[in-house]
Amino acid sequence: MLRPYYFWSSFSPVIQSIGRRSISAIEAVGRVGHFVMDTARALPDVGTWARLLILQMRRVGVDSLPVALFIAAFTGVVLALQASYTFTGAVPLYFVGTLVGKTMMLELGPVLAGLALAGRVGASMAAELGTMKVTEQVDALETLAYDPQSYLVIPRVLAGTLMFPVIVAFAVATGIITGWLTSLVLLDLSTQDFIKGLKLFYVFKDVWFGLLKSASFGFTITLVGCIVGLSTRGGAEGVGRSTTRTVVYSAILILVLDAFWAVVLL
């Protein structure tokens, strides 16, 4: 039988590892809090971030629209077909409109667009800011008396928060339109019936819930992209790591936020 000293010492590396990870997690939370405080403190510097906001809104919003619409279009088709397959014989077919509308507005519109844009917007921000960091461009910005939070972070985070709901609104509309076209062509469902289903359980909350969620996704994805990008170290390899991290963290946070809003608001 092991004596108590040897018994506990065999656990020592495990306990040390847990301790190290816990400390590093707490430090990471502290760094994020500090970063958000710094960003909030830079908000009054409107002269710097306001003129960069339009550019970022175009990059985050307009340039991301094709990807979001492409995904939404096929989601609408699949939703209509799966609804019809599930309802066969048991539920009136006009419920296809209900399912397509509700699912696109409440869940798939915001979440699928969010996940796709975590890859497109979040990764590109992390790569851009990471490259600026490792090539000392962020330091150069500071020596030119700019605050990186007002020059780099605020325009990106604001653009993400403002433009994601717009993208999702277009994506939801596209998904509903392709769902309707699929019902019309492949399911022999009339337009009147599809619209009847669409209106059946519609409440205005469906719209603002989806848009609020998208704004929170936009805020999170861009904030993660900025935090991870600006903490990049170690050249090209570091930039690659930051890009991957941003996509993974954003995807996880989108799903957590999705559940959070469902619990709080539904």
Binding site: T135, E136, Q137, T143, L144
Partner: peptide, 23 residues
């Protein structure tokens, strides 16, 4: 503080090792 640093930096030019130009 941040404002003090901004004022200080406005009087200093910094030339970086790899130029650090905004690409």
């Amino acid at each position: 503080d941040r404002d003090g640093l901004t004022r200080l930096r406005q009087g200093i030019g910094y030339v970086f090792q790899f130029a650090a130009l905004f690409d």
